[in-house]
Amino acid sequence: MRRAYTRCVRNARFEKRAQLQSMEPILIVMFLALIIGLLLLFSLRIGDREVEVTATKEASKQDLLLLGRIANLPELSCPKSESAKTYCIDMFKAEAFRQLMKDDDVARSSYYPLLGASEIAVEWIDMDSNGASINKSMVLYDNLNSSGVRPAVAYSTMYNPASPGAARMFATVTIYRRAG
């Protein structure tokens, strides 16, 4: 009787150990599959992240290019005789452009491919002959419905065709876009 009991227990212990040993291959394979799966998922995340970084860098670069193009548009640029090495915006054209963008929805939408969802403002410094100056500004285009904004800045000159003597004034052109 006792011998049978001992044998039973010994067999039971052997069974448990056998079960444990037989589980090992399953566990190994599951771990391997887990590692491979994690690596696949992380490679996806890396790919996504790269696209995001590239997209943001590209957006910055596009803003700078756009600022250059804005001042070269026939809608805004000084007559050819005035624009030298840098950008030059004709003040009277800028005012006409501003009015057009504000009052004419069709016209505003036709400039959307160029200007997009942004706000474009120009500030210029009106100096007098005594060395004093006033800062003036104008919003050329406003198609931005957003609170968080990311500005890009370029420097230019504002040309006043009505003022023959001191015609070109230092100007800052800022383009605001939605941040993120």
């Binding site: 026939p74 004709d90 009277f92 054209k93 005012e95 006409a96 452009f97 057009l100 016209a107 065709p161």
Partner: peptide, 13 residues
């Protein structure tokens, strides 16, 4: 649009 801007500009000038 461009000609319209020129027109407004010259008128104001």
């Amino acid at each position: 649009a461009v000609l319209g801007i020129y027109h407004t500009r010259n008128e104001n000038l």
